[in-house]
Design a protein around this nucleic acid. Sequence first.
DNA 1: AATGAATGAGATTTCATTCAT
DNA 2: GATGAATGAAATCTCATTCAT
Lengths: 194, 194, 194, 194
Amino acid sequence: MSPRSEAQWQEMREQSREKILSAALELFAERGFHNTPIQQIAKKAEVAKGLIYRYFDSKEDLLVGIIHSAFKEGDDYLEEANTITDPKEKLKMMFDISFDYIKGQPHHNRLLMQLSLQLDQFPVITQMIVAKYHANMPNLENLLEELGIPDHKLEANFLIAALDGIALRYLIFKEAMDLNLLKEGLLKKYIEHP
Amino acid sequence: MSPRSEAQWQEMREQSREKILSAALELFAERGFHNTPIQQIAKKAEVAKGLIYRYFDSKEDLLVGIIHSAFKEGDDYLEEANTITDPKEKLKMMFDISFDYIKGQPHHNRLLMQLSLQLDQFPVITQMIVAKYHANMPNLENLLEELGIPDHKLEANFLIAALDGIALRYLIFKEAMDLNLLKEGLLKKYIEHP
Amino acid sequence: MSPRSEAQWQEMREQSREKILSAALELFAERGFHNTPIQQIAKKAEVAKGLIYRYFDSKEDLLVGIIHSAFKEGDDYLEEANTITDPKEKLKMMFDISFDYIKGQPHHNRLLMQLSLQLDQFPVITQMIVAKYHANMPNLENLLEELGIPDHKLEANFLIAALDGIALRYLIFKEAMDLNLLKEGLLKKYIEHP
Amino acid sequence: MSPRSEAQWQEMREQSREKILSAALELFAERGFHNTPIQQIAKKAEVAKGLIYRYFDSKEDLLVGIIHSAFKEGDDYLEEANTITDPKEKLKMMFDISFDYIKGQPHHNRLLMQLSLQLDQFPVITQMIVAKYHANMPNLENLLEELGIPDHKLEANFLIAALDGIALRYLIFKEAMDLNLLKEGLLKKYIEHP
DNA sequence: AATGAATGAGATTTCATTCAT
DNA sequence: GATGAATGAAATCTCATTCAT
């Protein structure tokens, strides 16, 4: 009927897919995976229910799609950090990334935390999440060592736990938590007067 | 007149209720509330599906029942801590309680964290959880001040976040996390060489 | 874009809704509301159980739907009667309508009588039914007065009670009751030799 | 334990049975048979649920029990009427009985009407009810004949339908219907100035 | 005789998924 | 590619009935 170029079709497809992913992310995060009907995702994404099944094999596949796109984004951030060599700069960069993520991606964060607490329900996802949790540790340990912090291994554990805890509490208390203050505090503790 | 004494009836009821609560706690924690059919709870508790509805009005009411009993237990712990006046002793006691809880009540802990990430789905529960998260803060701030720790307010935030983060990571990595080592580390940092 | 025209969708919906309403009417009337499982309605309507819930929020809402459509039909009849001015003609018309309804709509009639005996179980329905029972009285009183019948108020009560009684007994004895004979008798009593 | 005479036991049993029958009658009439849980009957009768099954085999058997006792009562009334021979007196007696029943036994009446509209659901009951509806007709026809009323067969039909209709409407409108006025009217129409 | 805890079949309702167009 | 009506398995919940004491 309408003579659209292949590129235009591609574009349209991409848009629909994005709308679906974004609606599903938000709803899964707010209401939980098992408590979110496909119908509601379709409504929020403003597409027909059936269309979702053109892009994703199942509801679970849709969840995997979200996690994939969430991780791709996260990886991009981290790669950026790895180009830096100065340890103080690098640690500062890690704090920046972490707090940006905490503040800027609450839906991703909330969903990932939920899934972390429900491991071995979706094997495909489990791997990705555990990998992510492991990824930063050695990096951080090295950094703290380079910065001459005593007990650097233990301290890396506390620091990473504190970041997770801050992320968790921000999801609960939202604006009532002063993220900037906490970030300043960390910078002071670990970088300015380590 | 009555075939069983009132005490006997009471006893029977108590036992059934306990079996149901305990089975439901474990399943809600492992699989999530919305992903746990009543039928499965009944099977695990070794009672008939219908019996659950003699003790709880609905699945949601069962969840509330679990939270209630979880909180009652938690409060008992905390009261114990409040009898101590020496700040070092008291902080040590808080660490003991926290790590005992993290290690000893993983089901409660996992369930409460899940629910914390889904606040405003169960209004009755929200209040209890938010209250719990708030309860310890002022206490902890005072303690750190008494111990002469600089920036005690900020430090209290880090400490409580670190404890939450440790709890979260223990639920994910389980035995792979050395809780004892972490506890020792905290004792050293805050009590032995503050 | 759309695979079916809006009119086609509309048509499909209309048909399914009609099938469901008609099956439910018959079953509710024969077996009673509380004694008719949704599953049986689905079977009789030749649709899937789940489809019923696309068109009606609940079993009770389905009942309301039936009553609505029953009343719409009834109102159409009555309007027709109100165009007539000659009292004899008008009374005859009322008899025609009443007996047509008694003979032609036994399901509606049976269901409405059942519900009348269970008022205050479905508040939405109560209003409609009570209104219906009230509606005809003043009309009928006026008619009998115009026809010069003594004690016209009382007589209107007897007449309307007799019509209700005939309707009730027809539902019980069915063909064993000679409706034509009764109608002739009423015509004679009230119109030919009043 | 307590040495009660057999007569005392008998008395107690009779009382429990009565309480159950009376509670069930009221509830079946108000809420309908299928909408009344056994548990609710037990509560209203102030006996344990299990006790009901000592006296009645099943819920349906309980319904049969109610109908039986209702009919026994009704028969007693009618026998009284059959001792009278004067037609005017006898018709008056029938009116008295009918209106007494309508006013005095609304629960029985309501329940029987409901069951009449649901014939062929409880075969045992069907027979009893149909018999009752038939019973009075010949009697009434004879009476009207003896009173010299023209078209006495047809008129008997109208009269009996009017009585049923009045009964039905009294169940719907309750005190808003002036039963005394209606009875006076009937007496005038059929006895004083026939 | 009386109690009420326990059972499980079956009712209502939801929702992931399919499919004709 | 897009639509939304249709399906049916499975979830939540109810309730007649049984049973140990």
